[in-house]
Design a protein around this nucleic acid. Structure first.
Length: 825
RNA sequence: GGGCGAAUGGCGGAACUGGCAGACGCAAAGGACUUAAAAUCCUUCGGUUGAAUAAACUGUGAGGGUUCGAUUCCCUCUUCGCCCACCA
C-alpha cells in the first residue's frame, strides 16, 4: 500500500470535482434547493488561515447538504470596490482595477488549494460594469420611491481618507479604517432613508428565529427604539415654541431648566436680541468646532451657557431658563432636552456646576430622598411627590397618566424615536459605482434614465484624494446633457458607499448574466431567501442591516417575493494568533500555502475545523496541525490493515462493539453538524471510532476484524469525514471499490437498534458521591437493579449499619442511594 | 455607564434536558521498533496524601442558596471579551 501522498490525491480530486460539475447548479430546477452563501470577500492581497476558516466552514456545509440530498447552490464573488485598492494605487501606482483583478486571481487560487469549491459560473465582482450598472439601478429604484434624497448635513469627515464616513464607520470618534480623528463638515450628500424602515427592521427580527440572538440584539440596539413624549415649551416673549423629547415624562414636575444642542436651528433666533449675543455665539461656535472625540469624552466636564431666555413648563406654569450645552446631541430626539437634575445624572452634574435648582419628584421607596443631601441623581423607579394631582402614583403609572393628560391638554404627544439615522451613501472617492444623477441648472438633480445605465466609471482619472471626488476633473465624464431639458448639465461626481454594492449581491448570483434586469424575479423567488448565510460577526450591524433594508424596499416594489434575505445566519469566530486578530499590520498572519504544501489541504481543513467551536474565536497553533495530520495518516493506514484482514472471524465480539460504536458515531456526527455546526466534536467522535479500531487490533490481534466488517466501517468513516476532508475520503473510498463520488452518495443513516449494548455499566452514588459501578442488563426493573446493587461488595461496605432512606434510579444512567449523613456532634 | 457573553488540567477544548467532570487533540513522561534518529505503535498524564497501577480526600473564577445529586438552575461578587455609549 502506498503511503499517504496528499499532493497527488488532492490535485486529482479537485480536477475531478470540477470536470464532473459537482458544484454546478441549474437555477431553473429549484426542487430541494439549498442556497449556501459565504459573505463575499473584499479582494485583498493574500488570504490567511483566518479567512480560510470562513470558506472551509461553508464548504463543509455545502458538501454535507449535497450528501443529504439537497440541490446545493454555493456561489462566490467579490466585493471589489473600495478604499484599500485606491489607497494601494496611490502608493504603488497600479490602477485599482488591475490590482483588484490580480487579488481576485490569487484568492481564487488559494480557495481551490483548500479544496473549497463553488459554482464559478455564477461569479460576480461588484466593480464590473455589468454588476454596478445594477447597483446604479437600485439607486434609481430608491430615488423613485423617495428613499434616496440629498441634503446638506453635518457629516463625519475623515481628513486622512479624505472622505465622508457613515455613522457606522466611525468608532469612538475615529475613522474605522485609518483611526484618524473624524471631523464634522457640512456637505451636500446623498442619503438612503433607512429610517422609514426602522420599525419593520426591528419588528421583523422576530421572524429571524434561526439567527444568533447576539446579532439580533446588536441590530435591535442599533435601531434603538424608545417611546416617550414630545412636549412643547412656549418661548417666553415670542409666539414660538420648543419641543423636546423625553422618555421620562413622569419627571416633568422636576424639570428646572431646558437645554439646547449647539447645532439647534433656532439658536440664532433665540439669541437675536440678547445683549450677550456675541459671547453666546462664540461659545456655540467653539462647541461646534470640537471634534466628536472630545465631545464623546464623558469624563470631560459638561459646558453650557444661559441664553437669557425662558420657556414655560406648561404643566406647572413655571418659567424655566433656557440653556445651550455641549452634552445635548442634535442627532437624537429634537435637539432639545428638558432637564430634570434630580433624576438624570447628566442634568444633575450640570445643575450642580451652574447652580440650577434640583427638585425631587420621584421618591425612593426604600430610602426617602432629601434634596439637599443628594450626591447623585436618583434614576430608578419610585413614587411621585411634588407633582400636584399625580402625587402618590407609581412613576410607571404616572408616565401613562401624565401622557394622557398632556395629549388631552395638547401640551405634548406620545411619540417613538429611533437611534437609527439615515444611511449616508455619498463617497468622495474614485473606486466605486458613480451615483446615477445629473445636476441641471434648470431641473435640479435629475436621475439618469434607466436606458442610459450604466454611468461608466472612467478609467483614466487622476484619483488623488483632494477632499472632492477625483471624478471632478474628468471633464468628459462630468459634462453631459440634462435628460429632461437637454440643456448642458453636470454629472454627480460622488460614488456610492460599497455597502450599497454588497446589499444586493446575493440576488445577482441567481442570474449573474441577466442583461435586461438585475435578476430574474422568478428564479430569485424560487431560490431565496438564502438558506444558510455564513460570515464574520463584524458584519452584524452594517452589512446585514443594509441587506435587510434593500430587500424590504424591493419587496415593497414587488420586485422580489420575500422580505428577509437570510433565513439562517451563522457568524464564525476569528482565528487569533498570540491573542490578537490576524492582520498584516500586526505581522501575525499564518499563510495557508506553506502548510498546505507540507501537510496537504485536508490536514489544514481538519485542524481548522477541529480547533474549537466555529462560532468562537480560536487560537492558532502550528503544533496542533501535526495532530490533524497524524489522524489522517491513521485513517489512511486502515487501508493497509484492511488488505491484510482475514475473510472471516470466529470471535465476533469486537466486530459487534465496533459496529455499535460506528452507529453511535454516525448519530453524533449528524447531530453535531445539524445542530450548530459543532465540527470539532463531530471530528473527535470519528477519532474515537478510529481509536477503537486500533485499540482492538492491538489488544485482540490483527485478525479481530473480517474484511467485510472493516470495509464497512472504513467506508462509513469516509462518508462521515467527507465534508471535512474531502480529498482523502474520496481516495480511500475509491480504493474500497466505490465508483460514485462521496458527494453524490447518501449520508449514512444510523440504526437505533445497532447503537445499544445488552448490558450497561451503571455508576452507583451514595448521597451524590460516586462510590462504585455495577454492570446490569438493559431494561432491568428497579427492584432487580436494587437487588443487584445490594449484592455488590463494594457498595455493601458503605451501607453497613446504615438505613437506606431513598433510591434514585435513572434508567440506563445512574443510581443514587440516600443514607443519613453523619453529623459530628 | 448600558447590553450581551464567557471563566473547566501545562494548553485548545468536551459534558445531551440537573445525573460518572476533563471526551478528542496538543504538549510532557515512559516503553516497543531502529546501529541511531524521524515516523509509527503501546502506556501514563487535574491536585493532595500514598511505595503503589491499593485506598482516601479534594476539584469546573470566589462566596452563598435550591436539590438525593450542580460545570449546568438562582442570588452576590471578581476578572476577561464583544457590542453600544452624554440616546434625554
Amino acid at each position: 500500500m502506498e503511503s499517504y501522498k496528499f499532493d497527488k490525491i488532492e490535485k486529482k480530486w479537485q480536477k475531478k470535482w470540477r470536470e464532473s460539475g459537482l458544484f454546478k447548479v441549474d437555477v431553473k430546477n429549484s426542487a430541494n434547493k439549498y442556497y449556501c452563501l459565504m459573505m463575499f470577500p473584499y479582494p485583498s492581497a493574500a488570504l490567511h488561515v483566518g479567512h480560510g476558516r470562513n470558506y472551509i466552514i461553508g464548504d463543509v456545509v455545502a458538501r454535507y447538504k449535497m450528501m443529504k440530498g439537497s440541490n446545493v447552490l454555493t456561489p462566490m464573488g467579490w466585493d471589489a470596490f473600495g478604499l484599500p485598492a485606491e489607497n494601494a494605487a496611490l502608493k504603488n501606482g497600479i490602477h485599482p482595477k488591475e490590482s483588484t483583478l490580480n487579488n481576485i486571481a490569487t484568492m481564487k487560487r488559494q480557495m481551490s488549494s483548500w479544496g473549497v469549491e463553488y459554482d464559478w459560473d455564477k461569479e460576480v465582482a461588484s466593480c464590473n460594469l455589468d454588476y454596478y450598472k445594477w447597483t446604479q439601478w437600485m439607486f434609481l429604484k430608491l430615488f423613485e420611491k423617495g428613499l434616496a434624497y440629498r441634503k446638506k448635513a453635518f457629516v463625519n469627515w475623515c481628513p486622512s481618507c479624505n472622505t465622508v464616513l457613515a455613522n457606522e464607520q466611525v468608532t469612538d470618534g475615529a475613522c474605522e479604517r485609518c483611526e484618524s480623528e473624524v471631523e464634522q463638515k457640512k456637505l451636500e450628500q446623498w442619503f438612503f432613508k433607512i429610517t422609514d424602515y426602522a420599525e419593520r427592521l426591528l419588528n421583523d427580527l422576530d421572524k429571524l428565529n434561526e439567527w444568533p440572538e447576539k446579532v439580533k440584539t446588536m441590530q435591535s440596539n442599533w435601531i434603538g427604539r424608545s417611546s416617550g413624549v414630545n412636549i412643547d415649551f412656549p418661548i417666553e416673549g415670542t409666539d414660538k415654541k420648543l419641543t423636546c423629547f423625553t422618555t421620562r415624562v413622569d419627571t416633568i414636575y422636576g424639570c428646572s431648566y431646558m437645554v439646547l444642542s449647539a447645532e439647534h436651528p433656532m439658536i440664532d433666533e433665540i439669541i437675536e436680541n440678547s445683549p450677550e449675543k456675541e459671547r453666546i455665539k462664540k461659545f456655540v461656535n467653539k462647541i461646534r468646532m470640537e471634534s466628536k472625540i472630545e465631545r464623546l469624552e464623558t469624563s470631560v466636564e459638561k459646558k453650557g451657557i444661559f441664553t437669557g431666555r425662558y420657556v414655560t413648563n406648561l404643566i406647572t406654569g413655571e418659567k424655566i431658563p433656557l440653556w445651550i450645552a455641549d452634552y445635548v446631541l442634535m442627532e437624537y430626539g429634537t435637539g432639545a432636552v428638558m432637564a430634570v437634575p434630580a433624576h438624570d445624572e447628566r442634568d444633575f452634574e450640570f445643575a450642580k456646576k451652574y447652580k440650577l435648582p434640583i427638585k425631587v419628584v420621584i421618591d425612593n421607596p426604600n430610602k426617602h430622598l432629601i434634596q439637599e443631601k443628594m450626591t447623585e441623581a436618583y434614576e430608578d423607579e419610585g413614587v411621585l411627590v411634588n407633582s400636584d394631582q399625580f402625587n402618590g402614583l407609581k412613576n410607571t403609572e404616572a408616565m401613562e397618566r401624565i401622557a394622557d393628560y398632556m395629549e388631552k391638554e395638547n401640551i405634548g404627544r406620545r411619540t417613538i424615536h429611533y437611534r437609527l439615522r439615515d444611511w449616508l451613501i455619498s463617497r468622495q472617492r474614485y473606486w466605486g459605482a458613480p451615483i446615477p444623477i445629473i445636476h441641471c441648472q434648470k431641473c435640479g438633480a435629475v436621475p439618469v434614465p434607466e436606458k442610459d445605465l450604466p454611468v461608466v466609471l472612467p478609467s483614466d482619472v487622476e484619483f488623488r484624494p483632494t477632499g472632492e471626488s477625483p471624478l471632478k476633473n474628468a471633464e468628459s465624464f462630468v459634462m453631459t446633457k440634462c435628460p429632461v431639458c437637454a440643456g448642458s448639465a453636470k454629472r454627480e461626481i460622488d460614488t456610492m458607499d460599497t455597502f450599497v454594492d454588497s446589499s444586493w449581491y446575493f440576488l445577482r448570483f441567481i442570474s449573474p448574466k441577466q442583461d435586461d434586469a438585475p435578476f430574474n424575479k422568478k428564479d430569485v423567488d424560487s431560490w431565496l431567501p438564502v438558506d444558510q448565510y455564513i460570515g464574520g460577526v463584524e458584519h452584524a450591524i452594517l452589512h446585514l442591516l443594509y441587506s435587510r433594508f434593500i430587500t424590504k424596499v424591493l419587496f415593497d416594489s414587488k420586485l422580489v417575493g420575500f422580505d428577509e434575505p437570510f433565513k439562517r445566519l451563522f457568524t464564525q469566530g476569528m482565528i487569533v494568533k498570540n491573542g490578537a486578530k490576524m492582520s498584516k499590520s500586526k505581522g501575525n498572519t499564518i499563510s495557508p500555502d506553506a502548510l498546505i504544501k507540507k501537510y496537504g489541504a485536508d490536514t489544514v481543513r481538519l485542524y481548522t475545523l477541529f480547533i474549537g467551536p466555529p462560532e468562537k474565536d480560536a487560537e492558532w497553533s502550528d503544533r496542533g496541525v501535526q495532530g490533524a495530520y497524524r489522524f489522517l495518516k491513521r485513517v489512511w493506514t486502515l487501508l493497509d490493515i484492511l488488505s491484510k484482514a482475514p475473510s472471516s472471524v470466529k470471535e465476533k465480539g469486537a466486530e459487534l462493539e465496533t459496529l455499535r460504536k460506528m452507529h453511535q458515531t454516525i448519530k453524533k456526527v449528524t447531530e453535531d453538524i445539524d445542530g450548530n455546526f459543532h465540527f470539532n466534536t463531530a471530528i473527535s467522535a470519528v477519532m474515537e471510532l478510529v481509536n477503537l479500531i486500533y485499540k482492538v487490533l492491538s489488544e485482540k490481534g490483527a485478525d479481530s476484524y473480517s474484511k467485510g466488517t472493516l470495509r464497512e466501517v472504513l467506508n462509513n468513516v469516509c462518508l462521515l469525514l467527507g465534508p471535512f476532508v474531502p480529498h482523502i475520503a474520496e481516495e480511500i473510498r475509491q480504493s474500497l471499490g466505490e465508483k460514485e463520488s462521496i458527494f453524490r452518495s447518501k449520508w449514512p443513516e444510523f440504526r437505533e437498534d445497532m447503537q445499544r449494548a445488552d448490558t450497561v455499566v451503571l455508576p452507583v452514588q451514595i448521597n451524590g458521591k460516586l462510590k462504585g459501578r455495577v454492570e446490569v442488563k438493559c431494561g432491568l426493573s428497579p427492584e432487580e437493579i436494587k437487588k443487584r446493587v445490594l449484592n455488590d461488595d463494594k457498595v455493601k461496605s458503605y451501607l453497613v449499619n446504615k438505613e437506606i432512606r431513598k433510591w434514585i434510579i435513572i434508567a440506563n444512567k445512574l443510581i443514587n442511594i440516600v443514607i443519613p449523613t453523619q453529623t459530628t456532634s
